[in-house]
């Protein structure tokens, strides 16, 4: 036996950047995450060539899944050409040879920050959500050890109290994005800072969702056909953003989540947040073949 038997031929980096041992750890934790939906699984979270907080958790999950035939879409705030999305997509391609795509229908893996695409995801697609803070209890309990105990005890009373206080004070729930939701009737998770508009898309969905926080070293999952219920009182129902009647000033499409663009004259216009859906709508209007898939919302209403 020699020292050489302990190692292997030198390579600048492994396929998919992460080395085999990092991938195995992620695989083990991803399986546990599927087995206990919505429960945060701690993982080592290796450093990757991107700053923490910039999608390193999602990146590690995606890198573990990637193979040369993968087709990967990356969005930030719904947009494929957002600077950080472009940077992540380029990196994924460079380290794996996977094909880059902007089209939700074409993608096998969709890594996203803050949005779920408007087109329904299929049962062969994986959504990887980047998570800045995986702990839904943090606003009521910053100490992670205490929060973990609260999850173990299914002790979510303080979260409910916060929602109740908001209703008393403001007449409505004031939680914007990252709406805490009960998964499989047991664990409350944060769906990552997606708007309330997107949370119903995770409930009893056909696709598999991984949520991964690299900096905080936690990952969790929502398997297909799993209940995801936003915390709400029976007499104050869950409300998504009031965007159902807004129209995109660029594509003319109505009934989806919009970006509001302030104008110099004091008014505002709107544009589709799901930027590639907008591109396809424009192309179709111009007579090009640009298939648009079934959408979760129709005429501004969510259809289960």
């Amino acid at each position: 036996m020699s020292l050489a038997t302990l190692t292997k031929p030198w390579a600048a980096f492994s396929y998919g950047f992460l080395d085999a041992s990092a991938k195995r750890e992620l695989r083990r934790k991803m399986l546990k995450a599927i087995a206990v939906p919505g429960c945060q699984m701690p993982y080592a979270s290796r450093e990757v060539p991107m700053a923490r907080g910039w999608g390193t958790g999602g990146l590690q999950v995606t890198l573990t899944l990637l193979k040369p035939t993968s087709r990967v879409k990356v969005i930030d705030q719904g947009a494929d050409d957002s600077v950080n999305a472009a940077s992540i997509r380029k990196f994924l391609h460079r380290v794996s040879g996977a094909t880059e795509t902007w089209d939700t229908l074409d993608a096998t893996i969709i890594q996203s920050r803050h949005r779920v695409p408007e087109e329904r995801l299929r049962d062969d697609q994986i959504l990887v959500l980047q998570v800045p803070n995986p702990e839904p209890l943090r606003p009521v309990e910053p100490n992670m050890s205490t929060a973990r105990q609260m999850h173990a005890d299914a002790d979510y009373g303080r979260l409910w109290l916060v929602l109740y206080e908001q209703i008393v004070r403001s007449g409505r729930v004031m939680q914007g994005a990252a709406y805490p939701s009960l998964v499989n009737g047991r664990h409350v998770m944060t769906p990552s800072p997606i708007p309330r508009w997107d949370v119903p898309k995770l409930n009893m969905a056909r696709h598999l969702t991984f949520l991964s926080a690299g900096r905080e070293k936690r990952l969790y999952a929502v398997p297909p056909f799993t209940r995801v219920e936003p915390l709400a009182f029976s007499d104050v129902p869950y409300k998504v953003e009031d965007h159902g009647n807004l129209t995109c000033s660029r594509s003319g499409v109505t009934g989806f989540f919009m970006n509001e663009i302030p104008q110099e004259d004091g008014s505002a216009v709107h544009e589709l947040s799901d930027s590639h859906l907008g591109i396809k709508a424009i192309r179709r209007a111009e007579g090009e073949a640009a298939p648009i898939g079934a959408t979760w919302y129709q005429n501004g209403e969510f259809r289960a």
Binding site: S14, Y15, A20, M30, K67, R94, L208
Partner: peptide
């Protein structure tokens, strides 16, 4: 910068496909 597009070796390909099967099996 990285120069060549990396290609998975046989072990990586096998592990990736095996995990994919396990992942979908547990998901459904």
């Amino acid at each position: 910068t990285l120069h060549a597009t990396p290609v998975p070796d046989a072990a990586e390909t096998r592990a990736n496909a095996t995990f994919e099967a396990l992942m979908w099996a547990l998901s459904r």
